[in-house]
Design a binder for these strands. Structure first.
Lengths: 159, 159
DNA sequence: GTCGATTCCATTGACGCCCATAATTTCCCA
DNA sequence: TGGGAAATTATGGGCGTCAATGGAATCGAC
């Protein structure tokens, strides 16, 4: 498997360490990246995390702008400037920086959530709320989609 | 890691010395450059800093203009003319020149901010403001991007 | 000699690295 | 198919090293 999937909740120890779930570790290993690349998610109280794949995505976003341009500098500041590469110890654990923990409201436990090419780290309570909300949205969207398909089919549209 | 990422705030000591964050030092070491190449950022109260990679980028920028053109002379003046190579002591510290400190409004503490191929040095307070602003811009762009994609999908356009 | 600058040690707290243990899970073979 | 052995995972803790910082000592110039 080369995608991050499912969600796992784990506790931080007294030193603030937390194990990266084994299934995520194997994906990261395949990606080939020393450490864990992460940054505060832009529009949610969560941490985005991953390996080379994630970093390249950020790089691509920034390099769309010409060097020394206003936008480029601002994007680099907001993205690279808030990114961190956490060290992973021999047992596959990381310690989250205070900045990251504050952003996500993390205290003594976290939920790892697979999102395909990257994963997120949440405070467990917030994650459950977010999940419930997202599930609602997806249900609604699904209904909408199926009615669209039905309409298109009915009108004889071809794809 | 061969990129400058994350942000670290450190204090100047009584002699005006400040440690370059260890993670940045390793990147500079890999880049292979004695000292720290820096100059006042063109349009911000910050200091641009880096090694060979940064120097090459500036060179490329200037050489895009035709020789002896007005723009070329001005860029060369603004960038080369204001650049300094700071010495790094045995403990990885540098002393910022008064010119640089004045430009960035630095007094007793600085924030190092990774921007990928280079990094910037800010007065901590100003950095926080700038970061908030930049984050807003990135969020806005993200919304814009996703709505573009949504619109394209909804209209049934094929790539 | 005096002032400034640069090089060289000293401290302390955090962090990386190592080993231990318990609870699973996986695997294998009767 | 069941039951146990082996491997893996999550977690706890000890200890040495390094980073950040402060201060002393050395060097140079005037």
């Amino acid at each position: 498997m080369n995608r991050f999937v499912s969600n796992i909740t784990l506790r931080l120890d007294s030193k603030g360490r937390v194990s990266i779930p084994a299934s995520f570790r194997t994906v990261l290993g395949r990606d080939g990246f020393e450490g864990l690349y992460c940054y505060p998610a832009l529009d949610r109280p969560a941490i985005d995390a991953g390996g080379n794949a994630l970093m390249l995505e950020i790089e691509a976003l920034i390099e769309r702008f010409t060097p020394f341009s206003e936008e480029r500098e601002q994007f680099a500041l907001a993205l690279y400037g808030t990114s961190e590469t956490l060290k992973v110890d021999g047992e596959g654990r990381v310690v989250l920086s205070d900045t990251l923990k504050r952003h996500a409201g993390i205290t003594d436990a976290v939920t790892f959530v697979g999102l395909g090419h990257k994963f997120q780290i949440w405070e467990p309570g917030r994650f459950h709320n977010e999940l419930a909300e997202a599930t609602q949205k997806v249900r609604a969207l699904k209904v909408e989609l199926s009615s669209q398909v039905a309409a298109r089919t009915a009108s004889g549209a071809r794809e």
